[in-house]
Design a protein around this nucleic acid. Sequence first.
DNA 1: AAAAAATGCGTAATTTTAACACAATGCAAC
DNA 2: GTTGCATTGTGTTAAAATTACGCATTTTTT
Lengths: 256, 256
Amino acid sequence: MENPVRPRFGYLYPRPAVTTDCVIFGFDIADELLKVLLIERGIEPYKGRYALPGGFMQIDARINEFGLVVEERNESLLDCAKRELKEETGFDVQNIYELGTWSTPGRDPRCITITDAYYALVTIQPVRGGDDAADAKWVPLYQVLNTIKNLPDGLRFLAFDHDEIVTAAHVRLQQQLCFEPLAFKLLPKRFSMTTLRRLYEAILEKNFDRRNFARKMLDSGILDAFPTESRNINYQLNLEKYEEFKRTGRLSNLIF
Amino acid sequence: MENPVRPRFGYLYPRPAVTTDCVIFGFDIADELLKVLLIERGIEPYKGRYALPGGFMQIDARINEFGLVVEERNESLLDCAKRELKEETGFDVQNIYELGTWSTPGRDPRCITITDAYYALVTIQPVRGGDDAADAKWVPLYQVLNTIKNLPDGLRFLAFDHDEIVTAAHVRLQQQLCFEPLAFKLLPKRFSMTTLRRLYEAILEKNFDRRNFARKMLDSGILDAFPTESRNINYQLNLEKYEEFKRTGRLSNLIF
DNA sequence: AAAAAATGCGTAATTTTAACACAATGCAAC
DNA sequence: GTTGCATTGTGTTAAAATTACGCATTTTTT
């Protein structure tokens, strides 16, 4: 066995490697599908498999004259997640939320690695020719979840334990919808009521009565209406009204 | 400057230290207050201040003949949290849930440290003489939260950033109550309807009509009734009925 | 023992949700 | 361009859930 590179950063006790991964949700207006952004891995392990964008936490440190690590600067885990997203997918993500950590022993074959997982909501740009990151791909969420669900025991679709992370992110997104109108963060500034409803239906996997849904949304008062060229009406989130509405604390009634 | 201990575990890149902390919730039947278990720190930093129980993640590793770290066994973060709780408070915690990570640069003056925070629900043993851990203390949550809220800017009540963690844990507990009957995990096996209501009121900081609350709970079908010596009735969670009820997915209506 | 508080059991008014009707508009095929 | 069909905006009504409150009785307090 060789020893090609000498480890430089030494500690009194062993430490795990720390990474972030992120489930990026987007709503494709064209086919009205909720999608997630996956990266095809170019290196081992899991080369060629799809995975969530993510990577190692960055710490700037130097070694002093006693051989001790002197830490100079570090990023928070959230910063790390945002930086990795920018690097791997080109997205400057604003709406990003922590999902949880994954730390099962053996989850990364290289070394003991814990990951802090996030989920982010972005608006899919209309029919982009190709992604900044050549290997990034929008995949319908239902396809991913179905593939995962129907896999024989012990097999995985995505790299590492990312199957679990995607599944958990979807559940969290559904729950979070009870407390915050996250859905709006997946849409362009203005949207039709039908689009909004289709989005809620896609996330919650449940159909709503068109008229009752519209009434609930409008009664909440958080939407401003704008006429269009045709007879149809477009809507836009009124942030002030929304903040007030959130304080009143009855958003759960929107859905449940 | 001295170099008393030689760092043994070396890596190619700097790594953060990883810890877990836990907010332990308990409901004190005696005074009907929701309380959290705090530890008085015996060592620097923050010596003498109250803090959440927690500690460093444990990894077993050795150094091979090339000076490389060979990892042999590690615990998950959840295991770490449970182990630290057992060590520091004597509690064998069953109901423990992840809250989130804290990783702001500088949050630990010793070194770059990220913490994975948990919250746990236990039943406070009736009038225990003294805690296993001499420095552990049950403190009413409202006292902690009020102290934190009224602190001048920049000052903290608890050690590290534990003020934030406790506050976040309370919010999460409130939200989680919409999806799971976590409250029962804070009570002894059997309890009166009034106790249950007081608990919900303590967690949600909101009063319920005695009669309406009882009806909602009983209508849900998840409680079995048991007569007592007096005219009063005690109740007990029916786990099967509850699991069924959870699938039906209308627990949010209990509260909202 | 009297007063006060807590308990069990109930009803009615109100609000919220769910189910459905219908006319007008946009769109595609012919 | 007109015919058929899906979509949109506007409404009504029945059912269900929530809220507010009464009252006799038991338990606790003073």
